[in-house]
Write a protein that binds this DNA or RNA. Structure first.
Lengths: 135, 135
DNA sequence: CTAACGTACAACCAAATGGTTGTAGATGGG
DNA sequence: CCCATCTACAACCATTTGGTTGTACGTTAG
């Protein structure tokens, strides 16, 4: 259950994921691409901004692992990565598990967190990462 | 009733939600608070940054509806909002449903959404302010 | 009352964002 | 071949972020 996989120790993967999702234009691009791959210029035509701006948005989505680009002729087709949403969901699960953890403690059940998928580090919270009796 | 009201026509609520989640420190704050309410100064002591900086992070989380503050004496206790993660999940559901939709079409299944399959969220992203402590 | 604590908020700063234009490299059509 | 597309990327600009310090205010402990 520990989310691992490539597990990122700093949480920067999660940062990029949520950051990419935190923009209405990018979410819209995702919705369009999910319906079928589109070239960047085709996408750009759909928004009131320059081609370059849309190109940047696509790059952000790409770096977040939400889409992949595939070249076909002189066009670059953008398509969503099916596993992407799963990863976002997984990140949320990590948080949600904390919510559940609280309930679990009430039930006297503990040990499950370990999710430390890395993130616990935050920017560098001194010690504590330890889950024990917080005191 | 689902207090829609003005709802968010621009998706700025979702913007704030994901933006708030896109920072490791803020996610860490969430994890700490979920274990039990903490005063802002107590939280601040856990990070290598100033009290004011942590205060700002809490404000971001608050405006995203992820936490609420409650004053007790001279302290301000921060606690997570149980419905918050659900709202984030709902936003993801909206995206995920699109992914599924594509698969469905591939399966030649065109079920109209009139089915009672209980389409969660699908096209109804209403993460309005259930309580909106806005600002 | 006074001191210490916890908070709130303003002013300021460096860096990142989101956007613009402009230029240049591939690729495909006539 | 030449030209129109589509893409990539650099340079630049305005605004937002994330962080700092400093000050002011309410509350609780002595």
């Amino acid at each position: 259950m520990v989310v691992d996989g490539i597990a990122d120790e700093t949480g920067e993967t999660v940062d990029r994921l949520f950051h990419a999702l935190a923009d209405a234009t990018r979410r819209d691009i995702l919705r369009r691409c999910v319906r079928g791959e589109l070239s960047v210029s085709r996408l750009a035509a759909a928004y009131p901004m320059s081609f370059a701006a849309v190109q940047k948005h696509v790059t952000v989505l790409e770096r977040a692992g939400l889409v992949t680009k595939e070249r076909r002729g002189r066009e670059q087709l953008v398509r969503t990565d099916p596993d992407a949403v799963g990863r976002a969901r997984q990140a949320l699960d990590e948080l949600e598990s904390a919510w559940r953890a609280r309930v679990d403690r009430m039930s006297g059940l503990l040990a499950e967190d370990t999710d430390a998928t890395g993130e616990s580090g935050a920017t560098a919270p001194d010690e504590n990462t330890t889950k024990g009796p917080d005191r």
